[in-house]
């Protein structure tokens, strides 16, 4: 891939204490399954994002382990119940060891 994948995250604004909010994420990535043959007939090596983690103030909220069956440009949504102000950190881990990160400041009213 020529460009570094940039994650996009959407967290609803105006969160009240006790609310359960849905966080939606999207990241551009080919998610090469390793099951495909290239035009030269040789298998294309697998390269996917294999793990997505979301933590809030360092504590785990949600984690997804992705197998090659996950579509290209993977979308992931999850729920989150913030009880205090803090930082929601999301990390996508690539097969090649690279990590892509996004952080969102959460303010609870």
């Amino acid at each position: 891939m020529s460009t570094r994948p940039t994650p996009r995250v959407r967290v609803p604004g105006n969160i009240k204490a006790g609310d359960i909010v849905e966080v939606k994420t999207l990241i551009a990535h080919e998610m090469e399954s390793g099951q495909r043959r290239g035009s030269d007939g040789k298998p294309v090596p697998r390269r996917i994002i294999n793990r997505f983690t979301a933590t809030f103030n360092g504590k785990p909220v949600f984690e997804a382990e992705w197998h090659p069956a996950i579509s290209a440009n993977p979308y992931q949504s999850f729920f989150f119940k913030p009880t205090e102000n803090g930082e929601l950190k999301m990390v996508w881990k690539d097969d090649d060891g690279a990590e892509y990160t996004a952080t969102n400041r959460i303010t609870v009213s």
Binding site: F56, K59, P60, F62, K81
Partner: peptide, 8 residues
């Protein structure tokens, strides 16, 4: 998917 109580 791995959840925690913080997910709500």
């Amino acid at each position: 998917f791995k959840f925690s109580p913080a997910a709500g």
